[in-house]
Amino acid sequence: MNTCGQPGGIETLIVLGANPVVSAAGAGQVTERLKALKHLIVIDFLPSETAQLATLVLPGSQWCEEEGTTTNLEGRVQRRRKAITAPGAAREDWRILCDLAHAAGRPQGFKYASFRDLQDEFFRATRGAVADYSGLSAERLDRASFQWPVPHAGSPGTPYAYAPTYPTPDRLATLHLPHLPPAGTSGLTLTTGRLGNQYQSGTQTRRNPALRAEATVQLHPETARDHGLRAGDRVTLRTAHGETTLPVTLSPGMRPDTVFVPFHWPGTANLLTSPDCLDPHSRMPAFKSTSVTVHPATVPARDGPERKDPSPARPPRPGW
């Protein structure tokens, strides 16, 4: 995405079921790149902050409105059956992608008579990979769930693919701690994460009054006292990547050198994180470690986080 808006760079991007304006590290930079696109197509089943920037929004489907499989964290693959039909103009995501390819004049590789054909192709494509699904089929998954790898049709799957013993000299797992950037002169490190009643970028859960929660910054009472802050005071957090203003919540269980902000709200945690500092092994951004400074806010209190973004969002054009 770094070439958006540049000659010969990316002009069109399709975002399917994601909200990077809120969930991606360096959300401010991500938003700038999305706005620089000639066309941004968003496929989703609820409006999101990313969809507000789109030139075209296509109503997609939820998990219960299409066939598929679900793989959980232990590698267990289970079949999902379509329970209801997507309402109105909404359609299954795979059909939308195929139609877009045909409309763009690139139908090769996007011709499937049914979802079963697409799924079988995916299973074949994983042959020989660490997560090998090639021994699976809809018929096998009708009878039972399986844990990958499942390398052939007779394979019972591989429960506990990474269970002890481990290929280390003492046969025990070795924990590798990544090198974290220094906290900076403030001695404070920002870490981001989740709240129990919110999900991902909050596109679904922020709409539910029963799950209402406030976007706040959590500070240890000693840290708050050192900065002249009390519970409910508004505080401005600044990093090398951006700033945001939030009310304070006191959390005695936290470390005094740590500042915590949940990422479920726009204009909060990921305005402060960097898309460039990556773990050398997983290539994940440094969501958990960013040098931060804390300042009592001088701006007038308003509902929600303060955000400076003068450029207006483009009104999306409904699809189909």
Rank of each mutant, 00 (worst) to 15 (best):
P7I: 10
G8Q: 08
G9V: 05
G9R: 07
G9K: 07
E11S: 14
T12D: 08
V15P: 01
S23E: 12
A24M: 04
G26E: 01
E32V: 08
H39V: 03
F45M: 07
T50W: 11
L53T: 06
Q62H: 08
T71S: 07
R81H: 14
A83D: 03
I84C: 06
A89D: 11
A90S: 15
I96S: 03
A101S: 11
A101I: 01
A101H: 10
R106T: 07
Q108P: 01
S114T: 13
Q119V: 00
E121T: 03
A125I: 00
V130H: 02
D132L: 03
G135K: 04
A138C: 14
S145E: 10
S155Y: 00
P156A: 13
T158M: 11
R171A: 13
L177G: 02
P178V: 05
A183S: 13
S186G: 07
T192H: 13
G193C: 13
R194P: 00
G196E: 08
N197I: 04
N197L: 07
R207T: 10
A210G: 01
A210R: 12
A213G: 01
A213Y: 12
T216R: 15
L219F: 12
P221V: 06
D226E: 15
R230T: 06
D233C: 04
V235I: 13
T236K: 14
L237E: 05
R238L: 12
T239A: 07
T244A: 12
T245L: 11
L250Q: 07
P252M: 14
V259W: 15
P266I: 12
T273S: 14
L278E: 08
D279N: 14
H281I: 15
T290H: 01
T290C: 09
T290R: 03
V292D: 03
V294E: 05
V294C: 06
H295G: 00
A301M: 06
R302E: 09
D303K: 15
G304V: 10
P305T: 10
P305E: 05
E306N: 06
S311A: 10
R314A: 15
